[in-house]
Design a protein around this nucleic acid. Structure first.
Lengths: 222, 222
DNA sequence: ATTTTTACTACATAATCGGGTAGTTTTCGA
DNA sequence: TCGAAAACTACCCGATTATGTAGTAAAAAT
């Protein structure tokens, strides 16, 4: 459909997936108006988009979250499966945690609010191409905050160094006996500490302890 | 030491912790030159800083990572314990994962490279105060990428929906029996799926499965 | 100096797990 | 429609786990 438009090799190819046709065509016109961008494809749904050649060849994909049928979040996952080099930028009216973190998990490298101005949109795409991650400041803050360690509610629930060590062995699936060898304690000595871990984390099994340990960022998740 | 400088209430108070005295005084001079900022304290180490009143009263804290004694990462943790409202911005020459994610876990809300220009530094502090998270584009990308789901190495290792459901129950520490009740299967039916989960994740216990499930972002960590 | 707490060791036991084997039903592609 | 693979169910069993109880030695608090 847009085969008439010529592209030379240092241009940035873009696809747009957005069900609102006004927004879609507005962006298309905007980007095609810039020398450095070519809009390869413009789609009203993920279903259409994934069938196309355009998304395989796009450097950047602007993706709405609130789409009929396959959601933008699911769509991002499919698209990054098809074209893992594509830089997916979500454009959403929502900014709840589920939308944001769901998108990011699905492979998006940027997250903008739909109210983004034309200049900001263009600058965001440029930023993405240069290796950055366009986000609104508020979303950036949310993302960074999600890394912050939780403080234990009660100070007595803070794990000791030895407990943290043992919790790590638990996460590796080691038995009492194996852990005892690692930390030079008797099997019952290890049990003693594990009981204490369970109390502090308010759990009753290894699996739960590991789960909570990761959620509280006591255990490494990365 | 800086008590001569007057502060009115809509000014942004800043403390600087940086062992290089040239960098430190340069920033101090820079910020004091701006009407909106007051540098309350300027320290060569975290040890000095945590003793001071300044960090308790600072809106923004510029914190070097490579400090002698208490590292910037540990320092960030202590400082956010003392003043949880402080906006901690790390300023580092390193940009390895450990420095970046360590800082973020310890409570930093921004991460800049030491080569930051004066204008960028000022703009970054403004951004932080406005609720954003100053980062270089490359760091932002690293951060966002850390959210991305891992694709299983082999397609046959992808967990089915039922397996994911059951893995979630495992993370909650439920027994075969409890899970069986939840998913309307026999105990051995649940076992069947758990065996399959173990094979796909290459583990041999619940704790390991949960750990891997979180690392692969199959299980929610947030 | 004395008490208390913390860190361990020891033993016991019911419950639960992980894994092997095997049979049946359901699903689904050929 | 046939046959194979996937989804269950069932039974077995040694190993491991969670938890209770109890004792000891060292460290910390009084």
């Amino acid at each position: 459909m847009h085969n008439l438009i010529k592209k030379n090799n240092d241009m940035v190819t873009v696809s747009i997936i957005e069900d609102n046709i006004y927004a879609r065509t507005a962006w298309e016109t905007l980007l095609n108006g810039e020398e450095e961008f070519v809009v390869l494809g413009s789609f009203g749904s993920c279903e259409e988009a994934v069938e196309s050649e355009a998304i395989k060849k796009s450097d950047v994909i602007l993706l709405d979250i609130g789409l009929p049928g396959i959601s933008g979040i699911k769509g991002a996952e499919i698209i990054s499966g098809i074209n893992s080099n594509a830089l997916i930028i979500m454009i959403s009216i929502q900014d709840d945690d589920k939308s944001i973190f769901g998108s990011l998990q699905s492979g998006a490298i940027g997250y903008l609010h739909k109210s983004v101005s034309p200049e900001e949109l263009i600058e965001s795409i440029r930023l993405a191409v240069r290796g950055g991650s366009p986000m609104t400041p508020q979303i950036a803050r949310k993302v960074l905050k999600s890394f912050h360690k939780f403080k234990p509610e009660h100070e007595q629930d803070r794990l000791t160094d030895k407990e943290i060590t043992i919790l790590n062995y638990l996460a590796e699936g080691k038995s009492y006996k194996k852990i005892a060898e690692e930390v030079f304690l008797s099997v019952d000595g290890v049990k003693y500490h594990i009981r204490s871990i369970y109390e502090k984390l308010h759990v009753h099994s290894r699996a739960e302890a590991v789960n909570k340990g990761q959620k509280l960022k006591i255990l490494p998740v990365l």
